[in-house]
Design a protein around this nucleic acid. Structure first.
Length: 140
RNA sequence: GAAGUCGGCUGGACAGUCGCCGCGAUGCUUGUCAUCGGGGAGGAAAGUCCGGGCUCCAUAGAGCGGGAUGCCGGCUAACGGCCGGAGGUCGCGAGGCCAUGGAAAGUGAUACAGAGACUUAAACCGCCUAAGCGAAUCUUAGGAUUCGACGGCAAGGGUGAAAAGGUGCGGUAAGAGCGCACCGCGCAACCGGUAACGGAAGCGGCAAGUUAAACCCCAUCCGGAGCAAGACCAAAUAGGGGAACGAUGGCGUGGCUCGCGCUGUUCCCGGGUAGGUUGCUUGAGUGGCCAGGUAACUGGUCGCCUAGAGGAAUGACUGUCCUCGACAGAACCCGGCUUACAGGCUGGCUUCACCA
RNA sequence: CGGGGUGUAGCACAGCCUGGUAGUGCGCCACGUUCGGGACGUGGAGGCCGGAGGUUCGAAUCCUCUCACCCCGA
C-alpha cells in the first residue's frame, strides 16, 4: 500500500518534465508544518518538515528582521536556501519544508551552510518515516 | 611641493560552468514543457521630509477653521528645491553658515538676584549741600566755617542676560547730551539699482530693551484620499423574513457649515465577502551637436529604448589581475531634500614655501 | 504603502501644551523598632531627560534633522 502510493508520487516526476516544486504561501500552511513537530535544529538554521498531499515538495522560508536588518542580507539567505532546496528536490519528494534562519550568515559561511543543510536533509528523512507511519496509523 | 576649500565623475574588471525572473521566436507531448535569442537594481533603490503626475470622490466649488512658507529677482509641472544677487556673521584667504517680513496694530512673557525691569522705571552704598530752612562757632556789622534735615545727582560701586550711547574737553555744589568735537545711532531730500538694498547733502541730542522656532499681523500657497487608488471579467450564494421610525432624514465627504450627487432609513435573523486580468512602465526620459542665458534652465535637431515582480528575480564555483571591493535591493512613476558609504579618478580657487 | 505614538533614576510613569526648582510609586543603602526577619518609621544615594544642531539671557520643555522601539488601517 505504502509502496504503491510512493510509486504514484515519484513516477510522474521521473517520466514528465514538469515543474518539480512549489512554495508555501498561506500562513495556515506554515502553521500545519509547525504543528507536525518534525524538526532538525542546527547552528545557523532549523528545518521543519511534514508530509503533504501534493506531487512535489514545497518550501517556506522564514527570516525575521531581528536576524538581519537589511533586505540584502535577508534576500541572500532566502536565495541560498531555495537553491539548496532545488538541488535536493529528489530527496525531498512529498514533503513540506520550512527553513527557520536562526543566525545571520553571508557568502564566507557558504560551505558551512551547505554542510549543515545536507545534514538537515538527512535527518528530516528520518522524521518523514515516523510521520508517514503515524499518518498511516491514523488513516487506518 | 605642503596645507586648505568648493565641486564633478565612478562605485572591481575579464573568461568559463551550473542555477534564478520576465520577454520574443520555434517545436509538439499545449505544459508548473523544451531549445534558441535577448534583457535583468541604485547613487542613494533608503528615510518618507517636501513637491508634482496619475486615479476616484463634483469639471474641485464658497465661507469659517487649520496648515505651510517668509530678504530680493529668476528657473521650474511644482516645491520648503536650484541659480544669481543683497545684508549679517565667521575665516589671513578661497570660501562657510543664516526660518533674513512686521515689536509706533494689539495681547502676553522677562524666573532668581537687585534699590530699581518698562504709562521717560528706580536710589542700597555713594557724590553734593549752591539757592531757601534750622542749629553751633567765629565776627562790630555784613558775613564766613561746620553740622543737619528737606532736597539735588545718576559720575563710580554693586545685581543681572538686559539698568536708556562711547571717549575727551568745557561746565557744575555735585552732576547730567547740559554744551562742544570725534565716533556710533535715528530720520532723510536726492542719486544708483527691476528689486532686496547701497551711497548721501541735510536734520535730530539720542529715542521704553529683548522675545513673533509666544499668541498674533501682513504677503503668498494649500480640497480629500491614495495603485491594497481605480477599471474590467467572473464562479458560488443572495436579491428573503420580522420589528421600529418617517424625508428640515441617511450615505458619498475628509474639522465644520453651505453646496453638489445618489438614495427611504435603522435594528435583529439568514446568506455572502473567492479568483483572474489590467493599472505596469515611452517618460516633465536620456546621449551627442547647435543656439539663447552670468547661471539654474530653455529651445531646435539627430540618435537610443534601459527591470516590471506579486511572499517578491543577480547567487555559487573555477581561473587571471588590481588598490582585495563600502553603504546597501526597484514594488505606480517622476523632481528635490536628508541620511549611510571602502576607496578611486578629476577640475577650479586660496594661503605658505622653494626655483626661475 | 499609508497613518499615529513613545524614549526621563534599576523598573513603571508624571513634568513638556504655558521655557527658569527634574518629581511620584516600587526597588536600593543606612539608622531605629524586634530575640531575629517581615511590615512600619526616619534619613540618604542614584538621572548632563535617546543623539546632533538651532532659537533664547536661559531648553527635559520650542523648532529642524536623526536613531531605536511600539501600535493601527487596507
Amino acid at each position: 500500500m505504502l509502496a504503491v502510493l510512493a510509486d504514484a508520487l515519484v513516477s510522474p516526476s521521473k517520466s514528465n518534465s514538469c515543474r518539480r516544486w512549489d512554495k508555501l504561501s498561506m500562513p495556515a500552511e506554515f502553521d500545519a508544518v509547525f504543528r507536525a513537530r518534525c524538526s532538525s535544529g542546527g547552528d545557523l538554521i532549523r528545518v521543519l518538515a511534514k508530509t503533504n498531499a501534493c506531487l512535489y515538495p514545497r518550501l517556506g522560508i522564514t527570516v525575521s528582521k531581528k536576524i538581519c536588518k537589511t533586505a540584502v542580507g535577508r534576500n541572500y539567505m532566502k536565495r541560498v536556501s531555495r537553491e539548496l532546496f532545488r538541488k535536493n528536490v529528489e530527496a525531498l519528494q512529498g514533503l513540506d519544508l520550512v527553513v527557520l534562519v536562526k543566525k545571520p550568515f553571508n557568502s564566507s559561511d557558504y560551505s558551512q551552510y551547505i554542510a549543515e543543510f545536507q545534514a538537515h536533509v538527512e535527518r528530516v528523512q528520518k522524521c518523514r518515516n515516523s510521520c508517514v507511519s503515524s499518518s498511516a496509523v491514523t488513516s487506518t
